[in-house]
């Protein structure tokens, strides 16, 4: 059964001048961890805002749990959880107050759904009297996730949840997502990072408002036609020059730090066949 369905969704800004999303269609199955991967400005946030009933699509239709995003927006708002890319909880309320507030406006209580958020909440519980604005980035993330989960949503939308979060916290965050996914919550997550794509069950690559391909991460990597190599050397420019002169190499790019240290320099080489 499909939990989220998009059919030819279109969204334009400035009266049609800027096309943010054009003809996007995909389905997300129940209990799936689905990733929307694309660079900045690809239209990921626009799709999420249409799906969370914050924006009206200019064309096409979308539904969640069988409810249409335009007609049944009230039903959808009871059923989905949304965590925007920008931290948007009340900075002047404490951790506990934020959580209670969101539980109340969803007509539920923290106690009723404590089992769902417990694992995440225990990590921020020592700071429950602290104002949300005074939390560190990783803790803010966890609190925002708790608030998005407090009404036990069937579908959870996470818009770039790991942008601006350090590597360790990112890893932790993905582990939390995996565990939530195991509890049967359908999760849609958007990210500009390719390394996170492999952690999803299925991904959609999106660019300039169009879907490029939808498949499992393994299949997408398999489809890549040439082989990739990483080459390290201490003298970067000479290496780049030599490699570009080799006709077996289709293209090569410098990767990693180029200013601080000339050692441990990595190079990605695309070799045909």
């Amino acid at each position: 059964m499909n939990d989220v369905t998009l059919t030819n969704i279109k969204k334009t800004y400035n009266k049609g001048e800027v096309v943010a999303v054009s003809d996007v269609s995909f389905q997300v199955e129940q209990g799936e961890l689905f990733g929307l991967i694309g660079p900045d400005g690809a239209g990921k946030t626009s799709i999420f805002r249409v799906l969370t009933t914050l924006l009206l699509p200019d064309g096409g239709s979308a539904s969640e749990n069988g409810f249409d995003v335009v007609k049944d927006y009230k039903e959808i708002r009871k059923r989905v959880g949304y965590m925007p890319g920008k931290f948007s909880l009340y900075q002047d309320l404490t951790v506990e107050e934020n959580l209670n507030f969101f539980a109340t406006i969803f007509n539920t209580t923290v106690e009723a759904n404590y089992d769902l958020i417990k694992e995440i909440y225990v990590q921020i519980e020592p700071f429950k009297k602290r104002r949300a604005g005074k939390l560190s980035g990783g803790m803010k993330q966890k609190l925002a996730l708790c608030c998005a989960l407090i009404h036990r949503p069937t579908v959870l939308f996470l818009d770039e949840p790991t942008t601006g979060v350090d590597t360790v916290s990112r890893k932790e965050f993905w582990e939390m997502l995996k565990r939530l996914n195991e509890q049967g919550i359908t999760i849609l997550v958007s990210t500009p990072y390719m390394d996170e794509a492999t952690l999803c069950e299925r991904i959609a690559l999106i660019q300039d408002g169009k879907i490029l391909s939808i498949d499992t991460p393994e299949n997408i990597t398999k489809q890549y036609p040439s082989k990739l190599y990483a080459i390290k050397a201490s003298r970067m420019s000479a290496l780049l020059h030599d490699l570009r002169g080799n006709e077996n190499i289709s293209s090569c790019y410098a990767f990693g730090s180029t200013t601080t240290s000339h050692l441990n320099m990595k190079m990605i080489v695309l070799k045909q066949n």
Binding site: R77, G81, Y82, P84, L89, Y90, F102
Partner: peptide
């Protein structure tokens, strides 16, 4: 400005 209105808008309030 803080964006909390977005978070409120996705609730059934």
């Amino acid at each position: 400005e803080i964006g909390t209105i977005e978070q409120i808008n996705v609730t059934p309030i």
